[in-house]
């Protein structure tokens, strides 16, 4: 055992060796724990692994889970991108990106294709991600059974026994009452035929991208202290009835006002003149289309 003052003395004496001890804001033990949690999450796709979520310089609920994963994975030679609902320019995205870059020296980018690590809130990029990239999603509520089972202990037992009748019942009730499954963002998915998973509140549009992707998806819920993962080439299927199949959002006769794209997820906002304005949710994709760059968007 080395005492605290002993550690201080060691650092003073052999400072060069200890450089980078707090690389990426988190201390080494925190990073080690988070990396071990990630390994476990990857080993059991879709299973929520608890971890000791640290205090971060942003408030819980503002992406602390995603940020901790990012900081545990990032290296000095990484290029990072932070997405906030498709947009890189929101205050939150800018500040997260700046924090990561400042504490690691990693390069910043706004372009999906250039990034090695992408931290995202509620969107998966339109551009097809590669095996060399990792997508880290911020998760507000990691427990897909939260609204059908109030007890956390019971929900965990249901996962352990693969007992998802209550989840299916909620979907059935939805169909009976509304004629369709109304879940818009965060549509529940079955991962690797075993665990029902909350894919974070990504739109339905992004759900099929999780299936058999080249990319590793990591999910971090800082407030709820859970990490889970979808490794590359994993089966991810939305829960659907045979006669009420899952459908992604449709944008009939609509295109992006800025770039003209018809093959991306559009966000629509009402305008002062009574009309509506639809633009690409993914600003990186919008820029690429506008600049005439051809990017692969088939996942």
């Amino acid at each position: 055992m080395v005492s605290a003052t002993g550690v201080r003395a060691l650092i003073d004496e052999r400072g060069a060796e200890f450089e980078g001890y707090t690389f990426g804001f988190l201390d080494d033990m925190a990073k080690r724990e988070i990396r071990r949690t990630i390994l476990k999450a990857v080993a059991i796709p879709g299973h929520q692994v608890p971890f000791g979520s640290r205090e971060m310089p942003i408030a819980r609920g503002w992406g602390t889970g995603g940020l901790q994963i990012t900081l545990a994975c990032v290296g000095a030679d990484d290029t990072i991108k932070v997405i906030d609902q498709g947009d890189d320019a929101s205050v939150n995205a800018v500040n997260l990106r700046r924090l990561i870059a400042k504490t690691t020296g990693a390069r910043e980018t706004l372009t999906t294709g250039e990034a090695t690590l992408i931290q995202s809130r509620h969107r998966i990029p339109e551009e097809r991600m590669t095996a060399a990239q990792i997508l880290i999603l911020q998760v507000p509520i990691p427990e897909p059974l939260r609204h059908v089972e109030r007890s956390v202990a019971s929900a965990r037992a249901m996962h352990a026994e693969a007992d998802y009748a209550r989840m299916w019942l909620a979907l059935y009730e939805d169909v009976v009452r509304n004629g369709e499954v109304t879940a818009g963002a965060g549509y529940p998915v079955m991962v690797n035929g075993r665990f029902v998973m909350a894919p974070s509140p990504i739109p339905r549009w992004d759900i099929p991208k999780l299936n058999q992707a080249d990319t590793l998806f990591l999910f971090g819920a800082g407030r709820e202290k859970r990490i889970y993962a979808v490794p590359p080439f994993t089966n991810v299927q939305p829960l659907e009835f045979d006669d009420y199949p899952f459908e992604i959002e449709a944008f009939p006769n609509m295109s992006c006002r800025r770039c003209g794209a018809t093959d991306s997820y559009l966000v629509t906002s009402p305008q002062a003149d009574g009309g509506t304005l639809s633009v690409c949710s993914d600003t990186s994709y919008c820029d690429d289309v506008l600049a005439g760059r051809k990017v692969e968007n088939q996942w």
């Binding site: 007992d163 009748a165 299916w168 019942l169 059935y172 009976v176 009835f241 045979d242 006669d243």
Partner: peptide, 24 residues
Amino acid sequence: MVTAGGNVAERLLAADWRRVSDIR
């Protein structure tokens, strides 16, 4: 908190029934 039909359907869903019209 679940409809009468849903209560009956729960046991069918637990037995992997996945077609709403059949379940109903």
